[in-house]
Design a protein around this nucleic acid. Structure first.
Length: 231
DNA sequence: CGGAAGATCCACT
DNA sequence: GTGGATCTTCCGA
């Protein structure tokens, strides 16, 4: 049984400390659209270890994805597209895989999703947490953090992550497989299956049976996840 | 047209 | 652990 690891990062295995970082800028090239035109159930765990590349004000902010959740669209009671609901908000869920779905939650936070599957599915992957790779000082500024910054404080949580890399509604519907776009996802170093932890999704108590579906994925033992593993 | 709830976070007890 | 912030969306009357 893995126990709560919040606050104890020193002896935690971190698969990334050994990763070799290329100096070539091609390391930030977008994954192809075909990566996203598959089920969110498959895409979500494969996004772990990938890089979110956010271009804003001429700067490049990079996060390594460490936690995701799959939302399975029409058949998933937790999904905004459940039952085929198409509203102004959910319209971007019905774009082909490879677009961004950004929405406002609780009147004050933005959630960043990547649309997956095809334009009839309404599927998406919520990006729940990331580890700063480049531009961390700007992320800290965007988050208005003071003093010492604990692991996970910058982008551990969907609302925090969006604030950190300046994701708002202006990015709704953008293509994330466009190498010249403001938001993209690069290959990074995908997390191996044995390092992926799986569990139920967060904050969907209203979703009935779907509440227990194992569609939350995180890098096992990673300090920057949105909350400690109960798994 | 009104009211409730939300894929969250933070301050405080 | 609890409550408040803040506002769009959605559903029922």
């Amino acid at each position: 049984m893995s126990e709560s690891f919040a606050g104890s990062t020193v002896d935690m295995p971190n698969v990334w400390t050994r990763a070799r970082v290329s100096s070539r800028s091609s390391q930030y090239e977008s994954l192809p659209g075909s990566f996203f035109t598959r089920s969110a159930r498959d895409v979500a765990p494969e996004l772990l270890g990938r890089l979110i590349v956010r271009m804003v004000k001429g700067r490049r902010l990079v996060l390594r994805i460490v936690e995701t959740e799959a939302y399975l669209g029409i058949a998933d009671r937790a999904s905004h597209a459940f039952g085929g609901r198409r509203t102004a908000r959910t319209e971007s869920l019905f774009l082909p895989g490879g677009h961004a779905y950004v929405y406002l939650i609780y009147g004050m936070y933005h959630c960043l999703n990547v649309v997956t599957g095809n334009e009839t599915d309404g599927e998406a992957v919520l990006i729940r947490a990331g580890e700063p790779v480049e531009g961390e000082s700007y992320m800290i500024r965007n988050r208005k953090l003071q003093g010492s910054v604990k692991p996970g404080a910058v982008a551990g949580g969907p609302g925090r992550l969006s604030d950190a890399i300046a994701v708002d509604l202006s990015l709704n519907r953008v293509r994330i497989d466009d190498n010249r776009g403001p938001l993209r996802i690069a290959a990074g170093e995908p997390t191996g299956r044995s390092d992926v932890a799986t569990g139920p999704r967060i904050g969907i108590d209203y979703a009935g049976e779907a509440m227990r579906w194992p569609l939350r994925f995180a890098v096992r033992g990673h300090a920057h996840v949105s909350r400690p593993y109960p798994w």
